[in-house]
Design a protein around this nucleic acid. Structure first.
Lengths: 199, 199
DNA sequence: GTCTATACACCGATAGAC
DNA sequence: GTCTATCGGTGTATAGAC
């Protein structure tokens, strides 16, 4: 029984590759990231890279899928009695913090070419749909709690949650260097959610 | 005296080129837009394109500069007695409408490579700084009017105004096809500004 | 499965005829 | 100034030795 050493090593390398992809996606975006960049950063040859992932799109899909799974896990560990609005704030803050640590890729929305290929990726789409369902559920619950303004439809809030993860405002604020990371998180969460709350 | 017919024709062609660039930037973004795309869309040869703009970066800079100038003109024509907050809402709605009409490029923030070259472009930077000053002035005025929440610094609002112009939420909502363009504008303006208003 | 080497396509920019 | 043709460079992906 158990997993062979070889297999463990293989998996560890794949994790290392995805780590590298995450950083590169957040630094350069999908279009500008090259397979050479990835190989160099991991410290293997480009040819070897293709033994793990058969295309650049598959590589990015794997990185984004891991991110979405982590999002679900983060939501799962929240206490069930936490109000839906607070859960939404929490997951927004969580994704912003990930981004500030340099580990989170820009969302697919930044690259039209990547978007298309992701739609055809079953693994990615499965997790993406689960995350989407989860977000919609939370928004609906917050709505029925009376926490949200009737002025803005549910969809706008859900899409906004995705969008804030790749909001250039974060980059601007980092470069501006006036606010600490926690201040950036607080300000963006406050400003973002504030627009959706009942007054 | 006056401008020769030749010169007029030349200028008209440059305008047509920039129009094409605007559309292509919004569809594909800077990195995926090729000079062949631009030439094809305008209906001229690629070689001819380089007689007007000596590089791809110059081309994008010209398009973005024209956009920023239009932003200033839009602000200039607002009545001076309009409250600063209303002016901010107006310019946000204006840029969202431009985007919904397919005429506005993603912001430079989507491409790291473009960002760098823009910093070195005097024409662009001059206008960009003027727009920035204008935005900061309006935010400061809104602040002194007591219209803004003390919870969020001025910079965050200014950067947010830029960021909303390339917010993928818009793309999501268009594809979703549940809201009309005006509903999208209203919802985003309401949700965006709502997070910054005093409560 | 890792490497080096290379095929193949695309793109930005230029050359040169008209 | 417009065109066609092409150069030089780069990037994805593959081939083949070990």
């Amino acid at each position: 029984m158990g997993i062979s050493f070889k297999k463990q090593q293989f998996d560890a390398r794949e994790e290392a590759i995805i780590d590298a992809v995450n950083h590169l996606l957040s630094e350069k975006g999908f279009d500008l990231m090259t397979m050479d960049d990835v190989a160099d950063r991991v410290g293997i040859a480009k040819g070897s890279l293709y033994k793990h992932f058969s295309s650049k799109e598959k590589l990015a899909a794997a990185a984004l899928t891991r991110l979405l799974k982590a999002t679900l896990e983060e939501l799962d560990q929240l206490p069930a009695e936490m109000p839906a609005v607070e859960q939404l704030k929490h997951i927004l803050a969580w994704s912003l913090r990930l981004r500030l640590q340099g580990g989170v890729p820009h969302l697919p929305s930044t690259s039209v070419s990547l978007q298309r290929s992701l739609m055809l990726n079953l693994d990615y789409m499965t997790v993406a749909l689960r995350v989407n369902k989860r977000f919609h559920g939370l928004v609906a619950k917050a709505r029925s709690d009376g926490a949200l303004t009737p002025e803005v439809p549910d969809d706008v809030l859900v899409f906004t949650l995705y969008s804030r993860a790749c909001d250039p405002t974060v980059d601007f604020l980092i470069r501006d260097n006036k606010l600490s990371h926690e201040q950036i998180v607080d300000a963006i969460v406050y400003a973002t959610m504030g627009g959706f709350l009942a007054r």
